[in-house]
């Protein structure tokens, strides 16, 4: 169980560029939840995920994971609990290193690194088997540099890396946004498969309302740094895009900026 209580985050406080990115956010994520997160530009979605991951510190509030206080833990220490995939396909992998080297580093997430050899022979079989499930033919290119892969291949690889060691929470921040529609769909299906198979607790930011409704068991909507909607269970299953738009207008008192929200 992950608990965010009274979490605040302000960027550039006390300057002309002051931006309240998160305002009193309270959220309890149950184990096994698959939460989709939607909201307009600058609503604070990425900020919330980054705070959970420890990219920057909270200004106020507390983040607990199964009772363990993460609030002041540095990013690299929390990493043992979290799997992450970013919007930018370049962010999740080391382009100058081989596919197997990237996987080997991910395989050691949260473990003490030693002066033992970086990849052991028996790991290669595991990586090959895991890569096969992606159906991208990467299992035959273990030593290829990741820089040679396409954006979609890199995202699929990053997803695999994030889940190679089962994370307590998987954080996906618009991880298909930079891909072409067909590849995006493929990576999304893969995500659903992996989350389902490993029963991962997941938070997925998306700007596609259809995906947000179709996937997961719970949906939250953010606006100006607050969570304005939290829908789960049966209620979520019956949801339609037009319901969401209505709810948004009622809760926020303004119209959804449609330019980035994909309604189709």
């Amino acid at each position: 169980m992950i608990q965010l209580s009274h979490v605040y985050k302000t960027f550039n406080a006390n300057t002309i560029n002051e931006k309240k990115a998160l305002v009193n956010v309270n959220l309890t994520i149950e184990s096994g939840d698959f939460i989709t997160v939607i909201g307009g530009n600058g609503a604070g979605k990425s900020t919330m995920l980054n705070l959970i991951a420890g990219v920057f510190p909270c200004d106020g509030g507390q983040i607990l994971l199964d009772g363990e206080d993460l609030t002041r833990q540095p990013e690299y220490r929390r990493a043992k609990l979290l799997g992450r995939v970013f919007q930018d396909p370049m962010m999740g992998t080391a382009s100058e290193m081989g596919i197997e080297e990237n996987l080997a580093m991910a395989y050691r997430r949260g473990r003490r690194r030693s002066l033992r050899w970086g990849i052991r022979q028996e790991e290669r079989a595991l990586y090959r088997e895991k890569l096969k499930t992606l159906e991208l033919g990467l299992e035959d290119r273990l030593s290829s540099k990741v820089g040679l892969l396409s954006g979609g291949q890199r995202q699929a690889l990053t997803l695999l890396m994030a889940t190679l060691q089962k994370p307590r929470l998987l954080l996906l921040d618009e991880h298909t946004a930079a891909l072409d529609p067909k590849t995006a769909r493929k990576v999304l299906e893969l995500t659903d498969e992996i989350v389902e198979r490993d029963r991962l607790t997941t938070m997925m930011v998306t700007h596609n309302m259809r995906d947000a409704i179709r996937l997961g068991n719970r949906l939250i909507m953010m606006h100006e740094g607050r969570i304005i909607l939290d829908i789960m269970g049966e209620e979520k299953k019956k949801l339609e895009v037009k319901d969401l738009l209505e709810m948004f207008e009622k809760a926020s008192g303004s119209e959804m900026d449609n330019d980035r929200m994909l309604l189709s």
Binding site: S95, A106, G110
Partner: peptide, 18 residues
């Protein structure tokens, strides 16, 4: 490996617990 990856992609390396 972690040292080599650090210059290549710091963000990833931190996200992988280093």
């Amino acid at each position: 490996c972690a040292v080599r990856a650090t210059c290549n992609n710091e963000y990833m390396v931190r996200a992988l617990g280093v």
